[in-house]
Design a protein around this nucleic acid. Sequence first.
DNA 1: ACAAATATGTTCTATTTCGAAAATATTTTT
DNA 2: AAAAATATTTTCGAAATAGAACATATTTGT
Lengths: 265, 265
Amino acid sequence: MATNKSDLSLNKRQKQIVDLVQQQGFAAVEEMAQHFSVTPQTIRRDINELCEHGVVRRFHGGVGMNSSVENVAYETRKVLLLAEKQRIAQEVAAQIPNRASVFIDIGTTTEEVARALRQHEGLRVITNDLNVATILSSNPTSEVIIAGGVVRSRDRGVTGEATIDFIRQFKVDYGIIGVSAIEEDGTLLDFDYHEVRVAQAIMENSRKIFLATDHSKFGRNAVVRLGHLSQITALFCDKQPPQEIINCLQEHNVALHVAKQDSPL
Amino acid sequence: MATNKSDLSLNKRQKQIVDLVQQQGFAAVEEMAQHFSVTPQTIRRDINELCEHGVVRRFHGGVGMNSSVENVAYETRKVLLLAEKQRIAQEVAAQIPNRASVFIDIGTTTEEVARALRQHEGLRVITNDLNVATILSSNPTSEVIIAGGVVRSRDRGVTGEATIDFIRQFKVDYGIIGVSAIEEDGTLLDFDYHEVRVAQAIMENSRKIFLATDHSKFGRNAVVRLGHLSQITALFCDKQPPQEIINCLQEHNVALHVAKQDSPL
DNA sequence: ACAAATATGTTCTATTTCGAAAATATTTTT
DNA sequence: AAAAATATTTTCGAAATAGAACATATTTGT
């Protein structure tokens, strides 16, 4: 009887290759050959089989992760408007002094803020986003506190009643939040009820509230009411907002920070 | 005046390259050239500069993360005895049924258990290790709960009083822990007091306790007393333990699972 | 507006990696 | 123990990537 070709029986070395890739993101053929004390050619054959099964992705010189995981939606959203989000994040980070205490909410933009804060010193950060916690925990001068609760597989955000209770234990200098939509009258909206509950808890326990949002959020629509522009301290975005929003900000004395364009191109 | 050579002023594209690498683990030159609408040569120049600053690592065909981050110690320890840890992890995972509730403690071995549990269905997992949470959150059929508290930059473990209080809210079927050392009389030891406190909380709130450990831990020494072999349900390791330990296990009716060698070589 | 500085594109050659096929070693089966 | 199946090494030509040098924008400073 012929053995099934699509049978995914990986040998010990192949399993280790997969793990190496998942831990390091990339593994070079030559290095693996040395590590396993075999010929590069042998590693290549292993790699080719792994690729047939779609487990990893082949590159010239090695293998990397096959990014086609479960949460493509999230990963796609993450790259969307990445440059703009990074500019916004830079602007937010510039307003936060060393040794400050900060809440950082779930979100792709707030994650960029976390990246921009990596070089800060002595921060005390409380977050409900596993990605944010991982990013900032690489800085040993900062103290990172993760809020407990249920982790969403979608984006590794932590939400739920336990999370809200956890957040209420603290009172910090800066709260950094994002939103899904901002209506023309200044109403802040989001898609997820649980996420809104957490964001509200963050707002209640922060002395200053920074809202980071890219221009795509203006005039959009969403279901759950989070709050109103008048409740925040400063709005950070990548382009000049619509006139209605600007009026609303001035009326309620909310600062506006527009990140300058890197290149008009 | 000559501009400082070691000035790390990265342009917009270079920053994005770094972010791509940190998000995906690896980025190919050709793909980036397309993505940024520039020549591969331009990307190569960017990469070379980034490498001079030691930000990323060069590979034939692209760039990957420079694994020489802060926590080299942890990353090294992680690769140490990796194959053995994976075998142990397989054995542990085999004893855990679908839809079970599980505590998973901090540790390199327990992280491998998390990996081995990725294919399980409908698990309810509570952990104080960010890595474990990230690994298992990729499975949407399982519910992952992260314990709140201070994140250690060393290994992304969560410890402290808040963590213990959080854990005490639950009572689960299986608790999976690791140790730094096992003395001949069956005493379980660790290096970190805070870590021990959490492990004890896990033991108190689990119906069955699985201890996963590789052979290097037998006869070693450490400072903080965690507990005793008699308190656990089953011991998982990669080799037959010393006779004293085996006697101790039998005396207290503790099961022993020795993961079989993959290849004697 | 002009010149200097900087960044990017082109072209061509050197280097590295890849893959196929044959030779050798290892394991499994009978 | 011999034969068959499987895995690994070796060798070498083909393909891909890297880097140097020069040409061509593009930006910056005056």
